[in-house]
Design a protein around this nucleic acid. Structure first.
Length: 562
RNA sequence: UGGGGUGUCGCCAAGUCGGUAAGGCACAAGGUUUUGAUCCUUGCAUGCGCAGGUUCGAGUCCUGCCACCCCAGCCA
């Protein structure tokens, strides 16, 4: 993945920016910003916005600021700021400057005074309930507040006293004086300041009035020289307000707000409220639970920044509602990992195999490629001995020709080793197979027999040398593709099998598995070390994604036919 | 029933001045293969929400419908 391929494919925002640059608008500069509210963890939907903002600026030689939209101290905290910086950096982006909306509180206050002086803002002393009622409805115009005609001086004095802490929470608010009959509800004298006697994580007790989003955002953008202010469709109705404020203030930089649709991904939820609820109600194991669509969760699951960036590129940017299939995300991960994940063998659901004609006590140190197509990844040593484990799913007492694995009386290739034949099975008193007794063909190491065709290859580990391991096998967190659309509460749709722990073995070389390396356990999927789950003496791996599996499709089809 | 949006293959999505429907995912078929992986090849929208109209020609222009999404926080 290089700079060229990382470029965003054509989309309507790129078209707008291209035209602006050509026309010399904003002197041909491109400045964007990513403005999260620090009230949760960043998720894959944010990644879409991050890639867009940073990507567009990069493609046009511009820059991007990270700005925390910290205007509501009730919901925000510094810990979330930390995690967001970690996640953005991990994703691979660098901001030019880190700002907080709270850096502008003093300026914002002064701008508000300006608006009061222009008779474009007033202190309203109605209750929240009265304001709500007087706002009207979608089809009914609103009515003017009885306080709408206060004199400029009275407003000035009241606003100053609000700042000075003379009033309790909710006693007054500052509102813009626009038009209570506007068909656009956002223009019906929106509130821009409210009283909150709370400590702010950045400004401490310096303020007891806090500006609101609509007022703060456009001014912050302008102050930072942002040229293109990209946000989601939810703010389309707010654009007239964004422009109104900047025009009334006669700001010399007037960014263009452009809206795009947010990402909807199958089998998950994306709203911060719901993610927060899942975490706080312990329905998952924290913000970095590998089943969550948070960047922290995806990272722990084994997703790479490259895969996520590629995903954001592939899903595109439009204004239409989208419902992206999970397969798209998984495909991006597989594509990234295929070329760079070292291979290894792991048996998730072991059954013992004894190779009767292999000398007891003998151990062969087989030299095995770490990647089938990339010699530069080198080789490793894999011990082979008389007792090994294979996966239960790789053996059947009887099967038709389509089954290409080990069948009683049949042969199969042990990956990177010999061809074996299953001679008989040993069962426990309950009837379960506990051992498969085989014989091996010593002539088949590194070459195929000439007389017959070996159709299958299965993986294995040496029983004596293998390391016990736990495998977190994940399924989607929800049982339905779009939990948000269900009439049921999304918490009732949690998939009980979203995390299943398998107990098995990994080959000895994984004893020094790196925690930041994704491995492909051949025929099983891509895995990475999970250093948060406690496995005691055992290694713990997370399955990031399975390998593409055409066999299970064929098998499923046959099952269905029966 | 106010305002703002969106409708191109199962999903995502490209479609400059109207010129005769990119690509990816998924799926299907075949080839290679000591991963039923990868890789390679091939297939996959006479049609772009619907109905009219303009035009030699319309996904692209016009008109009228229809469907879906968003907005009534002192949240962002």
């Amino acid at each position: 993945m290089n700079e060229t391929t990382e470029k965003y494919p054509a989309n309507f925002i790129r078209t707008i920016i291209e035209k602006d640059v050509q026309a010399g608008k904003h002197s041909g500069r491109v400045v964007t910003r990513f403005p999260p509210e620090p009230n949760g963890y960043l998720h894959i939907g944010h990644a879409k916005a991050i890639c867009l903002n940073f990507g567009m600026a990069r493609d046009f030689g511009g820059s991007t600021n990270l700005r925390f939209d910290d205007t509501n101290p009730l919901k925000e905290n510094a810990e979330f700021m930390e995690s967001m910086q970690t996640d953005i950096t991990w994703l691979g982006f660098e901001w030019r400057e880190l700002r907080n909306a709270s850096d502008y509180f003093e300026q914002l206050f002064n701008f508000a005074v300006q608006l009061i002086n222009k008779d474009r803002a007033y202190v309203d002393s109605q209750t929240a309930e009265q304001i709500r009622v007087n706002r009207g409805s979608l089809t009914q115009p609103g009515t003017d507040s009885p306080f709408r005609d206060r004199t400029i001086n009275e407003n000035l004095e009241l606003f100053q006293r609000m700042r000075d802490g003379d009033f309790a929470d909710g006693e007054h608010v500052l509102r813009l004086k626009i038009d209570m009959t506007s068909p656009n509800i956002n223009m019906r004298d929106p509130t821009i300041y409210r009283i909150r006697h709370v400590i702010h994580h950045q400004t401490g007790d310096a303020w007891c009035i806090y500006p609101m989003y609509d007022y703060t955002h456009c001014i912050s953008d302008s102050l930072e020289g942002v040229t293109h202010s990209l946000c989601d469709l939810g703010f389309e109705d707010h654009r007239p307000l964004y422009d109104w404020v900047l025009n009334e203030l006669a700001m010399n930089a007037h960014p263009q707000q452009i809206e795009f649709s947010r990402l909807n991904l199958q089998y998950t939820v994306m709203s911060k409220r719901k993610l927060k609820q899942l975490v706080e109600e312990n329905l998952v194991d924290g913000w970095d639970d590998p089943r969550l669509p948070t960047l922290a969760g995806l990272r722990r699951r084994g997703y790479t920044p490259e895969a996520i960036r590629d995903f954001c590129r592939r899903i595109g940017v439009t204004k239409s509602d989208n419902n992206v299939e999970l397969a798209m995300l998984q495909s991006c991960l597989r594509e990234d990992l295929e070329g760079k994940a070292p291979r290894a063998m792991a048996v998730l659901n072991p059954v013992r195999v004894t190779i009767e004609n292999y000398p007891k006590g003998q151990v062969e140190r087989l030299s095995v490629d770490n990647h089938p197509k990339d010699e530069s990844m080198g080789q490793r040593e894999v011990p082979f001995a008389r007792d090994i484990y294979i996966d239960r799913a790789d053996f059947r007492e009887e099967a038709n020709r389509k089954y290409k694995r080990l069948v009683l009386g049949g042969e199969v290739r042990l990956r990177n080793a010999y061809v074996i034949r299953a001679d008989r099975i040993v069962r426990d008193p309950q009837g379960e197979i506990i051992e498969i007794v085989c014989t091996y063909d010593p002539e088949t190491l590194g070459r195929n027999p000439e007389s017959r065709k070996i159709r299958g290859v299965i993986h294995w580990v040496s029983a004596e040398h293998a390391l016990p391991a736990l495998f977190n096998l994940y399924e989607p967190l929800f049982t339905v593709d779009f939990p948000d659309m269900s009439v049921q509460d999304y918490r009732e749709l949690l998939n009980p099998n979203s995390r299943v722990v398998a107990e098995g073995f990994v080959e000895a070389s994984l004893g020094n598995a790196q925690s930041d390396v994704q491995y492909q356990f051949e025929r099983e999927g891509y895995f990475c070390i999970d250093n948060k789950h406690d496995g005691g003496d055992q290694l713990v791996f997370n399955r990031s994604v399975e390998l593409r599996d055409t066999w299970s499709k064929i098998e499923g089809r046959e099952e269905a036919q029966r």
